[in-house]
Nucleic acid binder design. Structure first.
Lengths: 204, 204
DNA sequence: GGTTACATGTAACTAGTTACATGATTAG
DNA sequence: CTAATCATGTAACTAGTTACATGTAACC
């Protein structure tokens, strides 16, 4: 899972571990993201040849908006200027995605559809897919959710416990909401594929 | 996590692994439940003294409604009658929760509030808590969700990518829905604690 | 002068998945 | 006769968490 997230983030620009962790935190809703998972993952990605690291030299493409973080970074760059040390203490290792990493990323971006967390990441990076692949991803997810829904209808939970009933009621509502959301995304996708290519999903 | 689920299910009646797995599947929404996790868990629970197993002798309290499964079981019981063998091939190991298991269960039923999966199970078994403990559980979960919401408002995601934006929009909606649901549960809980003790949560 | 943020890593642990091995019984 | 269901288990793997170790530098 982390592989997908890391490669996706590196596709937008070179980054070091600490910064990756921050962006990861923002991206993955729900669970934690920890250095204890990230650093070993980066080492693994490098062994596999999907990323390459260099000490410092952060070729960070500055985003349009200068965030707090970028402001700090700029100040630091002024203050620095000696050796491979950074703003604070240790040397940073800046990671860059390789050619092989890019193709591996595109594979990861498509496989499956059943895994909630994976789908989240896939959607977050689906702009890197071709329009038809993207549509396929959404349709696959939709099919998965529909099958979950169908299964729920086949053998309905009929617990007598009010808390359990309430829980399952919420499940059904969440499922419906998710399906409606997906349908909207799919509809937007289809519209943009034919008519006006360039517009993104609608959001009221 | 499995510990909580297994102990909770065993509190309602003795069960063997295979049957536990089926009930688990119905209970945990979202993820899979596998024998590969369950059987080792049962072994661990037994080593810890929280459950005890006996070969066969299923003292299954028949539920009010005779399900397909119970019908099959009844038929089988008629057809059987020789040795510790069951309906199909292998001897079943029937698990029963112990006294120590019960108190351990009550501990598990309360700790934390941040873990989504755990909370799900806690709610599913919260009928075994005292009313005030139950209310505490709901309030803790609510506090957790509120803090997530607050954090989201402090540093709002402002991605330019429409898919990412849509994703975060769904996150916010889901959070709101969950909070409303929890508030309803809490309100019901309070009402029942004072006025009419015995009625469960309302569900429109 | 203490807290927070920066920065990288390891080790031990928690939690669940996939695939395999084995074998009986029953329904179609 | 064959596919599905019942039944228990192991091994290897995937994925993430918590706690620790280590040290700098900026902020108040």
């Amino acid at each position: 899972m982390l592989d997908l997230a890391v490669l996706g983030l590196l596709k937008e620009g070179d980054l070091h571990g600490y910064e990756l962790n921050k962006r990861l935190k923002a991206l993955v809703g729900g669970y934690a993201t920890s250095f204890g998972a990230l650093y070993p993952a980066l080492a693994r990605l490098e062994r596999s040849g999907w990323v390459r690291s260099t000490a410092e030299a952060p070729a960070v493409e500055a985003p349009a908006v200068e965030t707090d973080d970028d402001a700090v970074a700029a100040r630091t760059r002024r203050n620095r200027r000696r050796s491979g040390r950074t703003k604070a203490g240790r040397t940073r290792k800046v990671y860059r995605i390789t050619q092989e990493g890019e193709s591996h990323f595109l594979e990861l971006l498509q496989e499956d559809a059943g895994n909630e967390r994976r789908f989240r990441l896939q959607l977050a990076f689906c702009r890197f897919l071709t329009p038809d692949r993207r549509l396929e991803l959404l349709e696959l997810r939709r099919a998965h959710l529909m099958s979950v829904q169908a299964k729920g209808r086949r053998d309905p939970e009929q617990s007598t416990d009010p808390y359990v009933r309430s829980l399952f009621q919420r499940d059904r509502e969440r499922l419906e909401h998710d399906l409606a959301w997906l349908d909207q995304l799919i509809a937007d996708e289809r519209r943009n594929q034919q008519g006006d290519p360039g517009a993104g999903p609608t959001h009221p």
